[in-house]
């Protein structure tokens, strides 16, 4: 089952919320350096799959392995695995009581056990990387949505993760701010970061994705390279979905 290149392996994942079956048997493998984009209609289980990858949701059955480590095993130190898996949320979720700099240093100090000086140095490097070092002393409420999301990306990157997960990172943004966030993500993809991205930005998928996974109603309907999937979908459900979102 294992391939040493698989950094993420999802095996027959099922997830119930009460009586609602959100995910109905999803399997997925992601190799080192791959960029996988997950698309699909709202409520199709994309977020749930993504959140199982860093154990924010616990699968009802099935298994998730990160670097061969079984997340659902009692012996697994989940906090350790999570330092290797960064997550960026639709709502940014910056810590409002902390400055930008503190947002990016706090977990480094608490979790990575870095000294203050080193944490600040790394934080400034990452803020540079996402293009807003000048906002280091600002509070989240003083930043635009696009800036907040870039800080959130820097906050994850400062932990030196091997994998980055994005759950609709631009869906809460005003149109003029989407590009600045996508540019940062494109840069990461180009640098070889392993990424799983839930998004409706097909331009990003085309430019960065190695594979696009189409989900509907809790299952993976179809997986293909972006251009193949967009121009030549195999399933009716996929055709319908892309005709809707690419149509106009």
């Amino acid at each position: 089952m294992f391939d040493s290149n698989d950094v993420i392996l999802i095996d027959d994942l099922h997830k119930y919320f009460g009586y609602v079956q959100a995910v109905k048997g999803v399997s997925l493998r992601v190799r080192q350096g791959e960029v996988v984009v997950i698309v699909g209609p709202s409520g199709s289980g994309k977020s749930t799959v993504l959140r199982c990858i860093n154990h924010l949701e616990v699968p009802t059955s099935g298994a998730v392995y990160i670097d061969g480590i079984h997340l659902e095993s009692k012996k697994t130190d989940i906090n350790k695995v999570r330092t290797e898996v960064g997550m960026v949320f639709q709502q940014f979720n910056l810590f409002p009581h902390l400055t930008t700099l503190e947002n990016v240093t706090i977990a480094q100090q608490l979790v990575r056990k870095r000294g203050k000086e080193e944490a600040v140095r790394i934080a400034m490097e990452q803020l540079e990387r996402v293009g807003i070092p000048e906002k280091a002393s600002a509070y989240p409420r003083q930043l635009s949505g696009g800036q907040q999301q870039r800080v959130a990306i820097a906050r994850s990157l400062a932990m030196n993760p091997k994998i980055m997960l994005f759950d609709e990172p631009t869906s809460a943004l005003d149109p003029e701010m989407i590009k600045e966030v996508l540019d940062v993500m494109l840069l990461l993809a180009k640098e070889g970061m392993t990424m799983v991205v839930v998004t409706h930005e097909m331009g990003f998928a085309r430019a960065a994705a190695d594979r696009v996974v189409f989900m509907d109603d809790g299952v993976v309907v179809e997986t293909a390279a972006p251009d193949d999937l967009f121009t030549n979908p195999q399933h009716d459900r996929t055709k319908l979905f892309f005709s809707k979102i690419l149509g106009h």
């Binding site: 924010l56 906090n79 350790k80 999570r82 330092t83 910056l94 810590f95 977990a107 979790v111 932990m159």
Partner: peptide, 9 residues
């Protein structure tokens, strides 16, 4: 969730 996904306990 943000705190936990950064590895905090």
């Amino acid at each position: 969730e943000a705190a936990r996904s950064l590895g905090m306990t």
